[in-house]
Amino acid sequence: MRAAVFDRFGPPDVLHVVHIPDPQPGPGEVRVRVLAAGVQPFDVAVRQGEMPWAEVAFPQTIGQEYAGVIDALGEGVQDLAVGDPVLGSTMLNGNAELVVVAAATVVRKPPALDFPTAAALVAAAQTASGALLELGVGEGDTLLVHAAAGSVGTVATQLARHAGATVIGSASPQNHDRVRRQGAAPVPYGPGLVGAVRALGLQPTVALDGAGAEAIAQSVELGIPLDRIGTIVDDQAAASHGTRVVRAGRDPKRLAHVAELAARGVVRMPVHAFALAEVVEAHRAVESRHSHGKVVLITQP
């Protein structure tokens, strides 16, 4: 099979696509023929050597998100079948034509959801839904989403709206129309954010930070209770201000719920697709933080 690998830490150019042996499923596992695979900031950080806790052994495969079709079953797997379309999380091996995962982690793909969008949702759906759950976002809340045009912010905005909350979303001016389409009132990120939020006449009751930098300090300045300010990116600022880090972890049930909402059109995720052979360009797009849509690799012709 073909897989994206890197032989040393560094810029996107350290990545290349090679042929490696096909993985075989063990007991309780399935093998998925990957049709689309997500690329996320975590992958960039691992490739750069900024995730020292991640176990890396060169040549190292990469990737956390996949969507595809089961093509082999390990011993003891009974609730899934060859040919089932699925999506899910993996660890440092998803940007490949085949991936072996525990059957218990697999989520069935709704028929109405295409494979690139399914792959694009995997991490963002679990991160956003878990964060909103931990922060208790619901009807009557006004949620401030820092980085509302990012993949997590995109899902969080739509899930919060679906739950009955009003949403304010920070983004660069060129993304304000997109934030509006997601159902949020856009404000520019940066030094003018606090004034822009106040000018809306809305008082945020909860905040989710996907941007870092001054976002937590701005949320505090806006009078949001400290226990309802959560970050997924800036642990240091959270510790400094006494706010929360909200990382609920992977949960196939939450992923399945968001996938069903996406299949119904309640949650939409724009996709920026690259071929597997273009993994270097895909990483550059994620690293730039200016990609229009979630970056995914199309792994089959």
Rank of each mutant, 00 (worst) to 15 (best):
M1H: 13
A4Y: 10
F6N: 03
D7N: 15
D7L: 15
F9S: 07
G10S: 08
P12C: 07
D13H: 07
H16D: 08
I20L: 15
P21K: 01
P23G: 01
Q24H: 15
A36D: 08
G38C: 09
Q40W: 04
P41T: 02
R47E: 06
R47G: 08
E50H: 15
P52Y: 15
F58Y: 09
Q60H: 15
E65W: 05
E65P: 04
V82C: 08
P85C: 09
S89I: 02
S89A: 13
T90D: 00
T90A: 06
M91A: 12
M91K: 12
V101G: 06
A103Y: 10
P110L: 05
A112F: 02
L121P: 04
V122S: 03
A123L: 14
A125N: 02
A128H: 05
A128L: 00
E134T: 06
G140T: 14
D141I: 00
L143N: 03
H146Q: 06
G150S: 06
G153A: 04
V155P: 09
V155R: 04
A160K: 03
Q174F: 10
N175E: 07
H176V: 06
R181K: 15
Q182I: 01
Q182C: 07
A184N: 03
A185K: 11
A185I: 09
P186Y: 06
V187F: 12
L193A: 01
V194P: 04
G201H: 12
P204H: 15
G212R: 05
A213W: 09
E221G: 02
P225A: 13
D227M: 12
D227S: 14
I232S: 03
I232Y: 03
I232A: 05
D235G: 15
D235T: 12
Q236A: 15
V245H: 15
G249R: 12
D251Q: 05
D251I: 08
K253P: 00
L261M: 12
A262L: 11
A262Y: 07
G265I: 10
V267M: 14
P270V: 07
H272W: 04
F274D: 04
L276G: 04
A277P: 01
A285M: 10
G293V: 02
T299I: 01
Q300P: 11
Q300G: 08
